[in-house]
Nucleic acid binder design. Structure first.
Length: 546
RNA sequence: GCCCCCGUAGUUCAACGGAUAGAACGGCGGAUUCCUAAUCCGCAGAUGGAGGUUCGAUUCCUCCCGGGGGCACCA
């Protein structure tokens, strides 16, 4: 709210003085001598106006000097305008937080726009990996933040339950089943070698005995497909529960084939004359739209490629009324983006509808060794195992705090051994301390009245804390704009830091000073509200005791 | 070979083109008769290399080096 206020005041001045609008930053300066907030607007204007930035700054400051929101405004360096906020303005932040409570930080920038985040989408051919975990957390945080910002958000997971890999899965399971019954069967080329299929096979032996021993036909294939899918999907849902994620929609790829969407879209593309047949397959003229090679939609054996069903899926999303969709993909799917865009163009779907947020891989380290992850090779650490070892809160926070575009290294030994030093505890501890202050106040007979005596707040630590409380909404907007959940953890970290500083330096509950105590408890309460809200957006608990 | 991403303290990460590049862990040294020391304070320690654009570059451009990923009738 502080940034909004300053931005507005400055914008008014420059539009009046220069009749121009310009993008500029309002941010926390690197040193406290530079004030509570500062802007680079004069330097930005200097370029377009071809004037000395310090001169421009002078003029802007002149117009704002009388404003009671500021104790003073200074110009520093090449033309930074540094604002020293009045206590009055800062106390207003506390008041607002206390009034709005859980709704503090909300702002309607989305105007109810219907958007979708699709993430966590996985082949149901094995358990979620640690990499999926990263994607799920990124998607969760972005979804929650977009909701706060007034978007109508749907969280959706696409289940790739069609296609060749499901058949391979069935064959792999069948091989494991037979191996347990003493029949030597090889896992097919490119099949799934993970231990989890042995577990499923073992259950199967108990349930159906040797009914399908050394027997393979269409019916058996269907049985093994269904069994494998059901079992794996249900354990994936267990993992989602464990990590604390739930989706609004689980969308089946197979359903697109069964309900005729794929055929409909194929016909549509044919009518638009952007497909052709070659070598017995049906191709999309990708090259007509972008500088890429044409791609197969229908294989010569009549089955659909992933590309085909994905086009149908996104066509359906469009028909479902989403104005924008954001697909969160691992960077290995990067090559899929241009041709999907081409397909959207071919279907006359607006350019800004289909958006992809890429995230880089997670490299695992265990015992100082890099662990390669591959579902097919069966060489991986599952998300489930990670959650058991590290815990939900730390896992979520850890993934949220790294920029999606960073190739992150997850050292399992380190995460386990040092779980007490995980940054999530730093934030949670601040929350627990706040809760404790109130039971302490009660114990010492210090009465608390909400919103009273705020005028007593104003020392350095209190001012920094109040200023930071006022930055919450700015942080949320950064998360949304940059698709960067780590902007939120960065914010919470600095908020917790300013609270710990305040707590360490000042006695908050002091029976000798009931009015000052009351004021400080109000500040603590407001801090607790924002911490709890921020942690909730990440899906991390805000403990009252640690 | 072509395309995308990344190289920041010993390690794991920050820094929407801004001011003296911030943390945490690890190392060294301090703080508790007082609300939770899962905290606080101090010391040492970094932008892979070479050019360029800019008032200003970790950030943008070019080249080089190193790592990851992609170039299927796989998903």
């Amino acid at each position: 709210m502080l940034v909004n206020a300053i931005r507005q005041k400055v914008s008014e001045v420059i539009s009046k003085a220069y009749g121009s609008e310009i993008e500029f930053e309002v941010e926390i300066p690197p040193r406290k001598e530079f004030g509570d907030l500062s802007t680079n607007v004069a330097m930005k204007l200097a370029k377009t106006l071809k004037k000395n930035p310090r001169e421009i700054a002078q003029e802007i400051v002149k117009s704002l000097d009388e404003d009671p929101s500021f104790d003073r405004i200074e110009i520093m360096g090449p033309g930074f305008i540094n604002f020293f906020l009045s206590n009055e303005l800062l106390r207003g932040v506390v008041k607002t937080v206390l009034e709005k409570k859980d709704e503090y930080g909300r702002e309607n920038v989305g105007n109810g726009m219907k958007v979708q985040f699709e993430y966590g989408s996985a082949n149901p051919t094995g358990p979620f990996t640690v990499g999926h975990g990263r994607q799920i957390i990124i998607g969760d945080v972005l979804s929650e933040v977009y909701k706060e910002l007034g978007y109508d958000v749907t969280r959706e997971m696409y289940i790739n339950d069609a296609g060749k890999q499901i058949r391979l899965l069935a064959q792999s399971l069948w091989a494991r089943y037979n191996q347990l019954l003493g029949v030597e069967k090889e896992i097919p080329e490119g099949g799934y070698r993970g231990e989890y299929l042995v577990d499923i096979a073992r259950d199967l032996v108990n349930e159906i005995g040797d009914r399908y021993k050394d027997l393979w036909n269409e019916e058996v294939e269907e049985f093994f497909k269904q069994t494998a899918l059901n079992r794996i999907l249900s354990s994936m849902k267990d993992t989602l529960e464990k990590i604390g994620s739930s989706f609004d929609v689980y969308f089946s790829e197979k359903s697109l084939i069964e309900d005729g969407t794929v055929e409909e879209v194929l016909k549509l593309l044919k009518n638009k004359d952007v497909v052709y047949e070659k070598d017995g397959a049906v191709w999309l003229k990708v090259s007509a739209f972008i500088d890429e090679e044409d791609k197969v939609l229908v294989r010569s054996d009549g089955t659909y490629t992933y590309f085909m069903t994905d086009i149908a899926y996104h066509y359906k999303k469009y028909k479902r009324g989403f104005r924008k969709v954001y697909d969160i993909w691992g960077s290995d799917h990067h090559g899929h983006i241009p041709r999907m865009k081409a397909a959207m163009k071919a279907l006359d779907i607006p350019d800004d509808f289909f958006n992809v947020i890429l995230h880089q891989f997670v490299t695992l380290k265990r015992g100082g060794e890099i662990v390669r992850m591959s579902t097919r090779a069966g060489e991986f650490v599952t998300l489930d195992e990670l959650l058991d070892e590290v815990g939900r809160d730390a896992t979520r926070y850890f993934f949220a705090m790294v920029d999606p575009n960073t190739h992150m290294v997850f050292d399992i030994d380190l995460a386990k051994a040092k779980s007490m030093d995980n940054p999530v505890y730093y934030v949670q501890y601040a929350h627990a301390r706040i809760h404790n202050l109130f039971s302490n106040a009660e114990k010492k007979g210090v009465k608390f009245e909400e919103g009273k005596h705020l005028e007593l707040l104003g020392n350095e630590e209190e001012r920094v804390l109040m200023r930071n409380l006022g930055m919450f909404n700015t942080a949320l907007k950064e998360v949304a704009q940059m698709f960067a959940p780590n902007r939120l953890t960065n914010y919470l970290q600095s908020l917790a830091e300013s609270f710990h500083a305040f707590y360490t330096k000042h006695v908050i509950v002091d029976p000798e000073n009931p009015e000052l105590s009351n004021a400080r408890l109000n500040l603590a309460l407001a801090t607790g509200i924002v911490l709890r809200k921020g942690l909730k957006l990440i899906g991390v608990s805000a403990p009252e005791r640690m």
